[in-house]
């Protein structure tokens, strides 16, 4: 059994239109670890996460989840991961609970489905509103529904693209607690991307800063602060991408 939750090696991606989104990036994520990908808009975070989630094919390099290649055995990979896209919705004609049940039934059988749903109810905190149609949800409610639908699957690697985007302070902090608790309770790995440096510093054991398709810095937040002699991660980030003006 492979001891790494995720190994990314020399990953490249050029889109059909010719955009070179990834120019060869490498990093690893250990089981039980929360790993953060940070970088400016268009750096290639979503591209990386979508390749790892089997949605896109890399044009170079590889990504392996617990030793399974994402290109060669996508179905096996999909059984181990759960992916929350950056921009995502749910079926608007379905009720919240029906959406969760749909996802649960794709991932489990029999009584396990109800167990998953119980867990999702708690995670979402949507209560009675789960019986309303998704089309009546606010942005924050929708995001909580989707996070519940992602984590209830109990993936060995959760891939979350900007999980707290669009959430208010209270909801964002609830989601962060849920993510942290999930990693601690299950020993699963979490790979997330974010623009929120505070969040990354609070959540992630290790981070990688990605800029124009390349990783420019990687390590534990504390070590990075030391390395860049910065007061916080935001400063590290700005210095790493060469945008620091003192």
């Amino acid at each position: 059994m492979e001891s790494k939750a995720l190994v990314v090696e020399g990953l490249k991606k050029t889109y059909p239109g010719g955009v070179e989104a990834l120019k060869g990036i490498s990093f690893t994520v250990n089981p039980g670890e929360i790993f953060g990908l940070i970088g400016p808009n268009g750096a290639g975070k979503s591209t990386t996460l979508r390749i790892i989630s089997t949605l896109l094919k890399p044009t170079g390099g590889y990504a392996r989840i617990y030793g399974v290649d994402v290109v060669e055995e996508p179905l096996k990979v999909k059984e181990m991961i759960a992916y929350l896209p950056e921009e995502s919705g749910a079926y608007k004609n379905l009720k919240g609970i029906e959406f969760l049940r749909f996802i649960a039934r794709l991932n489990a059988e029999g009584s396990e489905v109800e167990e998953m749903l119980d867990y999702a109810r708690r995670l979402s905190g949507l209560g009675e509103r789960l019986n309303d149609k998704v089309s009546t949800y606010s942005k924050g409610m929708l995001r909580r529904l989707l996070i519940a639908a992602t984590l209830m699957r109990r993936p060995k690697l959760a891939i979350l693209d900007e999980p707290t985007s669009g959430l208010d302070v209270l909801n964002a902090s609830r989601v962060r607690t849920a993510i942290r608790r999930y990693a601690e309770d299950t020993g699963a790995a979490v790979l997330l991307s974010s623009h929120n440096m505070l969040e990354v510093e609070y959540l992630c054991e290790r981070v990688a800063i990605i800029h124009q398709g390349l990783i420019v810095a990687e390590g534990e937040p504390a070590a990075l602060k030391e390395e860049f002699s910065a007061r916080n991660l935001e400063e590290v980030f700005l210095k790493a991408v060469g945008a620091w003006e003192s």
Binding site: L75, L84, S88, G89, A90, N107
Partner: peptide, 14 residues
């Protein structure tokens, strides 16, 4: 349109 495709395609089904 409703951005559900990526979630659907990453479920453990072909």
């Amino acid at each position: 349109e409703y951005k559900t495709l990526e979630i659907l395609l990453t479920q453990p089904i072909k």
